[in-house]
């Protein structure tokens, strides 16, 4: 009893775990503020006079802004499209029973179980034939395919928790199924749709393998651009860290602003 409930020991463990979670991010920002020589120092420096020279240097790199643009187009396009396709299907799975419902649900879920290369190789061959390689549309469609099952799965749970009564009242008033869904259910479900949309935006933004293989020069997202930096200059730690920091600052802000939605989205699927 004493050990387990001892507040101080418990807090210590929680703080140690928090430091462990945040340390790699702290380290990348710290390295970005060092001079190239400080960054290679042995032993590594914790205290030093910070310099913003690395940031000043990488901020002027037009490639970085192109990566942001590509990622924004792909993440926004794919999250909106995934929601538009997924929400109606999720609603049906939540509200109606029909023959083959379980199989339909499992089939959607099976795309999440598919190893990415099993999807990537045919995608690559098909895109090669169709001329979709290195296009925004191609990458958006690929990300929709990756994330649709997650959207359906999460929203199905969300829809099934909405009270039926309001929908029933509307249909007694003479609204047909479509009107009930569009005018009653969707507005009620808006918080859930927003949470799931935010999650999908982040997943699409962070996705690497498909973006690497299906994109190239015209469509290079942030993770692929970052990978390019790492590949080319292995020595310039300070400058690389500045680029990496610059690329993750918006993501960190995004996470901080939308933390509630993200926690809900990431864990919502488990509470059915």
């Amino acid at each position: 009893m004493k050990v387990f409930t001892s507040v101080w020991l418990r807090r210590l463990i929680l703080y140690v775990f928090a430091v462990w979670c945040i340390f790699p991010l702290y380290w990348i920002f710290l390295t970005a503020l060092k001079t190239p020589i400080q960054a290679m120092a042995r032993p590594p420096l914790f205290l030093f006079e910070p310099t913003f020279a690395n940031f000043a240097k990488v901020v002027g790199n037009p490639d970085i802004w192109a990566y942001f643009a590509s990622s924004t187009i792909v993440a926004a396009g794919s999250s909106l499209l995934t929601l538009a396709l997924g929400a109606p299907a999720a609603y049906i799975l939540a509200r109606y029973s029909f023959r083959g419902r379980g199989d339909f649900g499992f089939w959607l879920l099976s795309s999440r179980m598919t190893p990415p290369v099993a999807m990537l190789i045919p995608f690559f061959v098909l895109y090669y034939q169709l001329g979709l390689l290195d296009t925004h549309l191609g990458l958006i469609l690929a990300h929709v395919t990756l994330n649709l099952s997650i959207v359906v799965w999460l929203l199905r749970g969300f829809f099934s928790e909405l009270p039926r009564e309001i929908e029933e009242a509307a249909s007694l008033d003479g609204d047909n199924h479509f009107q009930v869904f569009a005018r009653i259910t969707l507005p009620l479900a808006m918080p859930g749709l927003i949470s799931v949309g935010i999650l999908i935006f982040l997943l699409s933004w962070n996705e690497f393998l498909f973006a690497l293989v299906l994109g190239d020069s015209a469509v290079r997202t942030v993770p692929v651009g970052l990978y390019g930096f790492i590949g080319y200059q292995t020595i310039a730690w300070a400058e690389l860290s500045a680029s990496a920091s610059l690329l993750i600052i918006p993501v960190i802000l995004f996470i901080l602003v939308f933390q509630r939605h993200l926690i809900r989205g990431l864990t919502m699927g488990a509470y059915r």
Binding site: C21, L202, N206, L226, A244, L247, I252, I255, L262
Partner: peptide, 12 residues
Amino acid sequence: IYLLPMAITPIA
């Protein structure tokens, strides 16, 4: 803080 590792861009 606990959310950060799984939400941050994995490549970074």
